[in-house]
Nucleic acid binder design. Sequence first.
RNA 1: GGUGACGUGACCGAGUGGCUAGGUAGAGGUCUGCAAAACCUCCUACAGCGGUUCGAAUCCGCUCGUCACCUCCA
Length: 512
Amino acid sequence: MSLSLYNTLSRKKEEFQPVHPPQVGVYLCGPTVYSEAHLGNARGPVVFDVLTRYLRFLGYQVRYVRNITDVGHLESDADTGEDKMEKAARAARIEPMQVAQHFTNRYRQHMLALGCLPPDIEPQASGHIIEQIQVIEEIIANGLAYEVNGSVYFDVPKYNEHQRYGKLSNRSIEDQLAGTRAGLEGQSEKRSPLDFALWKNASPEHIMRWPSPWGEGFPGWHLECSAMSRKYLGDISDIHGGGLDLMFPHHECEIAQSQGSHSHTDEARFWVHNNMITVNGTKMSKSLGNFVLLGDMFKGPTGPLAFGYSPMVVRFFLLQAHYRSPVDVSDDALQAARKGYRKLMNGLRLLDKLAADSLSGEVIRDRTVMPLAEGRQPDTATGDEELRKLVADVFVGLNDDLNTARAIASLFNLLRKFNTLATSTAAMATVSSGALAEAVEAYRAVVTDILGLQDEPRANAEELLKLTLEFYTEAKAEKAYDKVDVIRAALKSQGIVIKDTKAGVEWAYSEE
RNA sequence: GGUGACGUGACCGAGUGGCUAGGUAGAGGUCUGCAAAACCUCCUACAGCGGUUCGAAUCCGCUCGUCACCUCCA
């Protein structure tokens, strides 16, 4: 039983095998940091977080790269197009890099809150201009790019003579040419409307600019990922991912760039794409304005949502669907997810108790107090087998193209078994402590290490403390000094001292 | 126009030929000082029409509906 992943390149599930085991290189196209991240932006990072966690669980040495694109993308294809980063900067009257830094910080906060482990390398496009220029020079040397007025374009038709531009998104350049929208051409410098920019000449008012062999300018839209993926993961990485909407043109162009450079590869063995988040069946997107910002969503009502949802609930909600299916947001769906998430967490809290009970169950069995039918030793073979089956099912789900929806369903089945065991000594007697310990460990590992779901304490410590002090005050009034001492000692063990003042009972942090 | 998805019970959401996930909601029960949790039982669906098959939610065809990409988007 091993992990299989759906590869967009082959359009089928393939067994995952690293190029250089045990190393695995994973690249996820990160955000362009010119605005706040919305729920849709979170799906890829969450999915790839689970993927990298699982790969590590399987024993691979993973190098996970998630880039930050801080070199603005042009808003339109026209040469006069405005840069997103610059536009945002101008609006706020600050440096473009301030904009990038601000949203980078916000993005990291949100991803951390969602339980996404920081990537091993988080390269910034602006820090890899030299590498990008190098790739362009290679492509030019290979005769697949041309310079016009300080800009460099990738020659798609020429590339297509020997390679297939469209292999990832399953398009032919003939179809694309036929479908080219009128009006987009005109004064373009491009030889073909399919060509895309590798380097753009900076107009005088363009702030973000770097020197290059072709004059001052900035790199094209798709180049940073090719350059940085190669730098940190080699000519060919194991897995390259992003949202379905990046498949074309972004990833298609990346492949063309890598094939057209000295790498001569598809850049990655596995191309993995997560589906979109929808609102009432329509894709959540910046341009449509139907997005739900993560920061807003964590706090309270926003847009189509009448309530706020904690980061872990959001994470669970995303993982309850398979990553290749679209997922629709709504209060109903999120509230159902919240309950499910809490159920899973309560299960987590049950595990220690279960392990302890298992031991006592063993004792009971040894003394044959457990009155199984004719008083013979209970046979745990069947119970153990059932437990192992339940655990195995969880991994069947994970291995099947990272089907977290199935894995979670199986976890609930396992949890039901745990609950039964925890409330019934008779049931407990049907499993061996060894098998139970394995199952408990598996549940814990899948929930926390692989799915990355953490308990979110909802109880307010201050409120609990207040309540405790009320009991303290009551006990004191009743002169129940044994209780008083117990409360005092308990709080002291938490680093809190009770102070009886004339004004009433107060507390302070212990200074010891 | 080209390319590609999808339509599952009250809601969300797996499943891609026989074994009919799971969560939420609802009904009944066990337990319980009350409550909650938990457990048990029930509610059992695959857009429509045709076809292939011993057998289809699952394969094929048609119809209807929804969506995505082809322009920046995760």
